[in-house]
Structures are given as C-alpha cells and as structure tokens.
Write a protein that binds this DNA or RNA. Structure first.
Lengths: 183, 183
DNA sequence: CCCGAATGAGACATTGCTGTCTCATTCGGG
DNA sequence: CCCGAATGAGACAGCAATGTCTCATTCGGG
C-alpha cells in the first residue's frame, strides 16, 4: 500500500500533458489506482492541479539551479537550462495553459519568482553585451517559455526528433533563422 | 434581425481566445444574442468550433496571400506576413490548442495545406541562402506558430506592448537574442 | 498470524452544461 | 399597416463528471 504520491503525480502529469481535459477517472486509471483513492489524496481536481503546479514549480526551479545560470557565458547557461528543463517541458506547458484559464485570479507567487529569475538572466546577458537590447527581458522570457512548449508539443506529435529538442530551441532563440554572413 | 453570423463568430473568437472553456451561454451573451438563437445557427458547440476553424483557416490563408510570400526577400515577406496575421493571432492560438485535444483524430485538411505553404516558404528561404539549413522547415514553422501564439498572449496579458508585436516576433525568429558582432 | 489501515469497486446525489422545445414578443419586408 | 419569420427568455430532460459514501477485500507491520 502506502500510495506513491510522487508516482501518481507523474502519471497524472503525463496524461494531462497529452489531453488536458482528462477525467479524474482517467487520471486514476492512468495511475493504476481507484478513483476513490485518488480523491482520498487529492480532495478534488483543483487540489490535483495545484499539486501538479507545485511539482512544476519545483522542477522548474531545480532546472534553474542545476543550470547554474551565473556561470560561464549566457549561451552556455541557456543550453544547460534547456537540457535540464526538457523532462518537465510537457508538464510546464500544461500548467501554462491551465493558468491562462484563471483570468485575473491570484497567480501562484512561485511563478513570479521563477519568471523574475529568468528575466534577470536575460537582463544580465544584455548588460554583459551578449544579448541584444532591443528585445525586452520580459519578451525573451515569454518567448523561451513559448518555444519550450512548442518544442515539447512538436516532439510529442512526432514532427521533430526528441534528441534535437534542446538544440532547436536554443539555436532559434539565440541565433534565429537568418543565415549570418560568416556562416 | 437577420443575425450577423460574421459578427457572432468574431465575438465568439474574442471570448474563446481569452477563456477557451467559455460556455455556450457566455458565448451567446458575448454576442448579444440568446442561447436559443446561437443554437439555431450553430447546431452545437462542435459546430461553432468548426465554424471558427474555417474562419481561422480563411484568415490565415488570406494573410499568406496578402503577404505575397514569394516577393522580395524572405525577411520582408515574413514581416509582411506577421503584420497581416496579427489580427487573427488570438483566434489561431485558440484553434491550435483546441486541435491538440483531438488526439490523432482527423485533422482538418485546410491546416495541412497552410502548414505546407509556410514550410515551403522556409525551404525556399533556405535554398536561396537566406535561412540557415540546420533548422528544419517543419521546426521553423512550428516555432513561428508558437511565437505568434505566445506574442498574442503576452500582448493580451499586458506583458508587452501591442505595437511591438510584429517586430518582436520577426526579430526573434530571424535574428535571435544573441548580439552579433557587427552590431 | 492477526488486526487495523488502506484500497478498489461501485452506488448515489449533485452540479453544470448541453440540446430541444414552447411561447410571447419583436422586427421588417411587402 | 400587417403578417410571417426570427428572436429572447425560460422550462425541461439528458448527460457527463464530480464528490461522497459504503462495504468487502487486501496489504503489511507488530
């Protein structure tokens, strides 16, 4: 017994990433437990989503920590980060969409903190002359999130190879599609 | 009388863009009509979404046409396109999310045709030496869609200025965040 | 081995949305 | 002006998911 809460959350994340409207019953079945048991541990769908949110925040923060965004060039740091965040990309994409539904409501302070860290990273890169300054840190942050979500979806849909995920995201975000003269 | 179908679709698009789970009743109220009338014109929620899908496909195609993707440099064409597609960005973002829910089901052939046009544009740019060739046309296409959706959302959330929308998307997609040496 | 705790299966009421229907009202063309 | 068509408001049943509860079963620590 002693239900593995972590494993339940992981399977729920995997399912909801694919189909965000999945039923509590489907979530339970996907975790290999009964719906009643699922309800005993997460008082409702809201509680489940909130638990997933905390998991996502924790993983996102862990990826930022693991990437050591202050060390080396900004480009190296960004590469490390995208590699570190890749396993959580699907979950994060789901949570972003889910958050968009709560229009105006109180947004989890955890996200603000993470957003601030990412935006500060881009600002630092601008101050060091590594990033262009005509694109705001806020936009670069949003664009990074968007590309991670898009990449996760494209991989899952089979439109791009999974092993290219970090390369494609970082190359596009940093270098863009334009072929530069020195190439 | 003689309900303005176009105007109903537009207000539905505006509402569903903000909150994709809006009720038929809310859609009707947003359009200033009764729920019964809404049902008389769109036999159900599915029919409404399908009508919105056709509208989105038509607008997307119109934006491609208006941008004349074959004329001038690829960069100029892309700029024209993003400017032309901006008014439809919210609707397209909603439709992409909605389509993701139909896992595996028959996807509207209209999208395939549009995807092919966009991918062909990037491929042409690669052949002309304007775009780098280590990023696949399929990925560039997905990334463009993702950035358009992200941009639309960031504007609506007030995180970036609306008038910067085309500039930010095109600059990031083409040039990337890296500050190049010649700058 | 045994007993308590946790689980799974299912019944049940509730809720919110949907789709259909009716009927009084309103609009607008002829 | 008048009549038919369209609309709005609301009633209604159906349905799917939720959340709660019960009860038999199973697991595992002592």
């Amino acid at each position: 017994m002693t239900l593995d809460r972590e494993q339940v959350l992981r399977s729920a994340a995997a399912l909801l990433t694919r189909r965000s409207t999945a039923t509590m019953d489907e979530v339970a079945k996907a975790a290999g437990i009964g719906r009643a048991t699922l309800h005993r541990h997460f008082s409702g769908r809201d509680a489940l989503v909130r638990a997933l949110e905390e998991l996502g925040i924790q993983e996102f923060g862990a990826a930022l920590d693991a990437a050591a965004m202050d060390e080396g060039t900004s480009e190296e740091a960004l590469r490390r980060f995208v590699v570190a965040v890749e396993p959580s990309a699907g979950l994060l994409s789901f949570l972003v969409t889910e958050n968009q539904l709560f229009e105006g409501d109180d947004q989890n302070a955890g996200w603000d903190r993470l957003d601030a860290r990412v935006a500060a990273f881009f600002r630092r890169g601008q101050e060091r002359g590594e990033f262009r300054i005509d694109l705001t840190p806020a936009w670069l942050t949003e664009a990074l999130y968007g590309l991670i979500g898009t990449g996760a979806w494209a991989v899952q849909a089979g439109r791009v190879a999974a092993r290219d995920f970090p390369y494609m995201i970082v190359e596009l975000l940093l270098g863009g599609a334009r072929r530069s003269v020195e190439q």
